[in-house]
Each structure stands twice: as C-alpha cells, then as structure tokens.
C-alpha cells in the first residue's frame, strides 16, 4: 500500500470536511454571498509576532531591564507620559539576543517521545487581566538566569482592557514534562472609549514554585510601525505569538505582559494626542 492508495481513499472523506477547508474560496466567488456576521467587538486583524528566544544573557537582560524600568517608574500603575519614555520597553528588546538557535535552560528541547495527548480539549483562555502595580526588590543576584521576581497586584482593569491568551487544543506532552505548544493566540480587547496603543513586545513570565513571576521570553514584532499597534474602542486584535518549534514550554502557570496606553485623540495621530492612562497588563494562563 502506498501514499497514492491512501490519497485515493481520502478522496471519499465526508463532504462537509471538503467544504469546510476551502469554503471561503468559492463563497468569495459568489456575488450573492454576504459577509460573515461581525461581533460588536470585532477582531480587527491577526498579527504574527515571532518569538525571540532569550539566551541566558537575554533573560538576565530582561530582568535588569524590568527592574530598571520599575526603578525609573516607567512601568507599574497609571503614569504620565511626560515623565516617561513611551518606548522604554524597547530597551528590553534590544538587550535580547535574537538568535533563536541558542538553547535556554528554561526552554528544554522537545526530544522525548509523546506519551499522552490532550487532543480535543478546549483552548485555555485566561480569566485574569491585572495591572502590574509594583515589584519587590530583587532577592538575589540581578543577573541570575531566573530573573527578578515580580509581584502581580490584582488591580481590575477589565472595564478598560482585556487580554486573553490561549493555545491550540491539540497539545502533546512529552516524557520530560514539556509540551509542544508552538504558538500562543492573544486577543487584546479595548473595552474603553479611547484608542488603545500597545507596545511591540510581549514578555512571557512563568510563576515558579514560590509564586514568584520570572520573565523567560520575549515576543517582538520587529519593524512594526508603532502607529499600527492600536485597537480602536470596542475592537479586538488577534495576535499570534510564534514560539520557535525547537523549544517547548513546561506545564505551569504563565503570565503574558504587555504595556498599553490610552490616548485621547484620533487613531493614527498619536503625536498630537494626549496620554490618558498607561498600564502594564498581564494575562494569566496555564499550560
């Protein structure tokens, strides 16, 4: 029996599956077809942000930068733009080694055999969206590969912005406990009345056994025009964070952190707009 035989047998699969796979092609050709219904908070567009794997030095750089930003008062709670650098987080980006081939101890390679498969489960959606209102002083060496602990204060901002994180449902887990999650699907919803801008960097943190939050990776959309990184009022944006296939995330509790800012003014005219509020928000999810 050959692949050709199987290809011929697959020819007779259920019509619905054939229809489903290319449905948009011929529905687009049908002039009478109507557009799909759009929800009130419509998903504006999907963006792909590639994963930049941090090296040991990169992780340490994140920790230093996060601590530095905290010390400078740049992140955490409501802030005034005049006293801050809007693109301060880019400092973190620049400090990360963009070489995705360098292994990091916190992201083991998925070399084990698949022992269990959790196919068919629903994608996990985060239930929390909190501001990072404060950090505690580093307890150890600032350049430690585990980074500096962050304390998450559950300040409710759900009336302004929601951040949900999910991953594909057919995740497999390996003998070493790692998983083959290759992407995270993020939906940022602007519930407020003003344009919401977000920074081009998402930081993935893991909660360790002590409950400390440790930054382990950063997702950077290099070259993206900052003016494109906005979500209009009552709109959502879907962002795919692409994890390098060679690496996998261990099961655990994670936080995805991003800086967002509300402006009063027209979308796309950020230079003349007035900053209203700025938050560092985090969406929590489990793998």
């Amino acid at each position: 029996m050959t692949g050709k035989d199987l290809f011929e047998i697959i020819s007779d699969i259920d019509d619905n599956y054939i229809n489903e796979a290319h449905e948009e092609d011929y529905s687009a050709l049908d002039a009478s077809s109507s557009k799909a219904p759009v929800s009130a908070a419509s998903v504006k567009r999907a963006k792909l942000i590639r994963f930049v794997l941090p090296t040991v030095a990169g992780i340490a750089a994140i920790a230093i930068a996060v601590f530095g930003l905290w010390k400078a008062g740049i992140i955490g709670g409501k802030k005034d733009l005049i006293k801050q650098q809007c693109d301060s987080a880019i400092v973190v980006t620049g400090a990360i080694d963009p070489d995705p081939t360098t292994p990091a101890t916190t992201m083991p390679m998925s070399t084990g055999d698949i022992t269990t498969t959790t196919e068919g489960i629903e994608p996990h959606a985060s239930a929390q969206c909190s501001t990072i209102a404060d950090f505690i002083e580093p307890t150890g060496n600032e350049t430690d590969t585990n980074g500096d602990p962050i304390v998450i204060i559950d300040t409710d901002v759900s009336s302004l912005v929601n951040l949900t994180v999910s991953y594909p449902p057919d995740v497999s887990f390996y003998e070493d406990g790692s998983s083959d999650v290759t992407e995270l699907d993020v939906v940022l919803t602007n519930v407020g009345d003003h344009p919401l801008y977000y920074e081009n960097e998402f930081t993935l943190c893991v909660k360790n056994e002590n409950g400390d939050v440790v930054p382990v990776a950063a997702f950077v959309n290099e070259g993206e025009n900052r003016l494109n990184c906005y979500v209009g009022p009552s709109e959502s944006i879907s962002i795919i964070l692409d994890i390098h296939d060679t690496y996998s995330l261990d099961p655990g509790t994670y936080l995805l952190v991003v800086n967002v800012q509300y402006f009063d003014g027209e979308i796309g005219d950020i230079d003349s707009a007035t900053l209203l509020e700025k938050y560092t928000i985090a969406g929590e999810f489990n793998i």
Partner: peptide, 10 residues
C-alpha cells in the same frame, strides 16, 4: 510530496 507524506502513515 503529498504522496510521500501519506506513505509515511501506512
């Protein structure tokens, strides 16, 4: 290529 891939299955 498709046939080669399916050939792996069976």
């Amino acid at each position: 290529l498709v046939l080669d891939e399916l050939g792996e299955v069976i």
